[in-house]
Design a protein around this nucleic acid. Structure first.
Length: 564
RNA sequence: GCGCGGAUAGUCUAGUGGUAGGACAACGGCUUUCCGAGCCGUUAGCCCGGGUUCAAAUCCCGGUCCGCGCACCA
């Protein structure tokens, strides 16, 4: 186990879930410090992506009814078909294996795979025969209600809750694009073999933003604020660019401005919580790597002990999800976009002749007539589609009339740009990028150089000596700081040096020490974690000084003279 | 899911069939005028289930978890 992981467990950041019953891969407990850290990161995410934008946050159920995931495509693309070799026991994803070995695109359904296996007498690389193909479902299913119940799934992403509620949300925003909807919460994927500590979990935390835009206007009004930011991009041809966002859009490396805006915003967010810019890059998905819904997709990747790991996915999901839900639910998901001024258009319309249609088409006549009225007339012959059947109609069935129509706008299905954050991975990256060792007075020290605003314990109060009256005074200050809303700890065990090291290890940025002088002039010392320097401040000023320090990167020297 | 390796106190680790030991940490006390000091004391462990044996941390089987490789990662 790494030094860091050992510390995270011992000091209470992360624990294996269900430990007393042997544990279960893919689940972790957020221990007190880890929980605090992740919550703080979530709150900063809110500041960036909800409060700072035209974005609302909602909270929808973790369990979704089956229909949602049939429409979203998860129920099919999540149920991949697998084949297992009877001889060597290897399991493959069937459609991938067929493509690789036979260079055939096949449907991932069990029947299609079975057929291919028979026709081509598919064998394993080891020469063994495959058994019956079986489904490999990556969603957790459950029954809603007693008895037979209704089939439901634990959501594999938070996004669907937003798409499903789109009509209400659009209304909430008074049908004016662009707007965004965010959701922070748990998602579930029944991974085959979760590995790499917290990197692949079966139950994990997502923060997702669905930013709805007009398909023809993928612009962001605040792009100018970020366009000069320089960042590392790896495009789909594996070419690395060190480039500004503006250039990246102009050169077409990033498909549109909204995508670029959120890439930039994501980078700023990640830097603000303490992720190292040198260990951060944005990588474009290759064409065969993209999810079933995405057209362009960029991952924020962080370099850590496991290599480059995806921590954020920023995808242009187009109108895939809304269109699918519109089709499956039969509920219109479009938004009416008014033109700046109404447009008058001349149209040729077909007026159905019921007396002709009726005798020929009988019961279908009414539906054909309805379809006819919607058709635009360009030629002598009109084709309409009724119940999936294409029907050609000659002139005898309608009359043409020229009409002038005033069109005041159009209905469009918005496209959505989705930045999707893996909070567990981000939290862990922050820990890895903050973990450091240095030498203080000749001895090695482990120190977690967390940004002050994410530190799970913000301040520790320590009596110089573990006896009265130092302890009593220190406890009074603890009480004071807790009432002011600081995450405060108190420690009087062992020597003062040992206690400083304890708080260095968990990343507490400031230690307050009650010493002899405290009783002479009501001052205490504030020690800075990173420099180990101390300044002396009045107890009455403590709250204000700490607030300033934690909110900023200012040096403690601005608040008093260096004491030691 | 497959293969290889591993699992002893909170953490790290010694222990090849015969009384489970240490270090660090934690906790209590003494001491201590600012960076893991010292002294005394305390708490605390063989992953789970089965088998072999007079006797299992140790050998065998199955499972779980951890690490690595393969596969998987919508």
């Amino acid at each position: 186990m790494s030094d860091l992981m050992e510390m995270l467990i011992r000091r209470g950041f992360l624990w294996q879930s269900f430990e007393i019953y042997g544990g279960m891969a893919g689940f972790i407990d957020y221990a007190p410090l880890g929980n605090n850290l992740r919550r703080k990161i979530e709150n900063i995410w809110r500041e960036f992506f909800v409060i700072g934008e035209r974005v609302a946050e909602i909270d929808t159920p973790l369990i979704g009814v089956e229909e949602v995931f049939i429409a979203s495509g998860h129920a099919t693309s999540f149920v991949d078909t697998a084949i297992e070799c009877q001889k060597c026991g290897r399991v493959y994803r069937a459609d991938h294996y067929v493509k690789e070995k036979l260079n055939l695109e096949v449907d991932a359904s069990i029947d299609a795979i079975k057929e291919v296996m028979e026709v081509y007498e598919l064998k394993c690389e080891c020469g063994g025969n495959f058994g019956e193909p079986f489904p490999m479902n990556l969603m957790f299913s459950t029954k809603i209600g007693a008895g037979k119940g209704k089939l439901g799934y634990l959501r594999p992403e938070t996004a669907q809750g937003i798409f499903v509620a789109f009509r209400r949300l659009s209304n909430y925003f008074r049908d004016k694009l662009p707007f965004g909807v965010a959701q922070i919460g748990r998602a579930f994927r029944n991974e085959i073999s979760p590995r790499q500590g917290v990197i692949r979990l079966r139950e994990f935390n997502q923060a997702e933003l669905e930013f709805f835009v007009h398909p023809a206007e993928k612009k962001h009004p605040k792009f100018v604020e970020l366009e000069k930011d320089t960042l590392t991009l790896v495009d789909k041809f594996d070419k690395t660019h060190r480039i500004t966002l503006k250039e990246a859009v102009e050169k077409g490396i990033i498909a549109n401005e909204v995508l670029a805006y959120f890439i930039g915003k994501t980078r700023r967010f990640l830097l603000s919580i303490g992720i190292n810019d040198d260990k951060l890059r944005f990588r474009q998905h290759k064409d065969d790597e993209k999810a079933h819904y995405a057209t362009d997709c960029w991952d924020a990747e962080a370099l850590m002990s496991y290599g480059w790991i995806e921590i954020v996915g920023i995808a242009d999901r187009t109108n895939y999800d809304l269109s699918r839900h519109a089709n499956f639910s039969k509920v219109d998901m479009s938004v009416f976009i008014p033109y700046s001024a109404p447009v008058v258009v001349k149209k040729k319309k077909a007026i159905p002749k019921m007396s002709a249609l009726g005798p020929v088409f009988k019961a279908k006549a009414k539906k054909i007539a309805e379809a006819l009225e919607k058709v635009e007339v360009n030629s002598d012959e009109i084709e309409v589609e009724v119940d999936g059947e294409k029907i050609k109609l000659g002139k005898e069935f309608y009359t043409i009339q020229e009409v002038e129509e005033e069109v005041s706008g159009e209905r469009i299905v918005p496209h959505v740009i989705e930045p999707s954050f893996g909070l567990d991975r981000i939290t862990y990256t922050v820990l890895e990028h903050s973990f450091d060792k240095d030498i203080v007075e000749g001895e090695e020290r482990k120190v977690l150089r967390l940004k002050r605003k994410v530190a799970p314990i913000e301040v520790a109060v320590l009596p110089l000596l573990s006896r009265e009256p130092f302890t009593i005074k220190a406890l009074e200050i603890v009480d004071l700081l807790r009432k002011s809303g600081f995450y405060t700890d108190y420690d009087d065990s062992g020597s003062i040096g040992r206690r400083y090291r304890r708080f260095d290890e968990i990343g507490t940025p400031f230690c307050i020490t009650v010493d002899h002088q405290t009783f002479e002039d009501e001052t205490v010392t504030i020690r800075d974690r990173d420099t180990t320097k101390q300044v002396r401040v009045k107890i009455s000023e403590l709250e204000r000084v700490l607030k300033d320090l934690i909110r900023s990167d200012r040096s403690i020297e601005e608040f008093g003279e260096i004491f030691r």
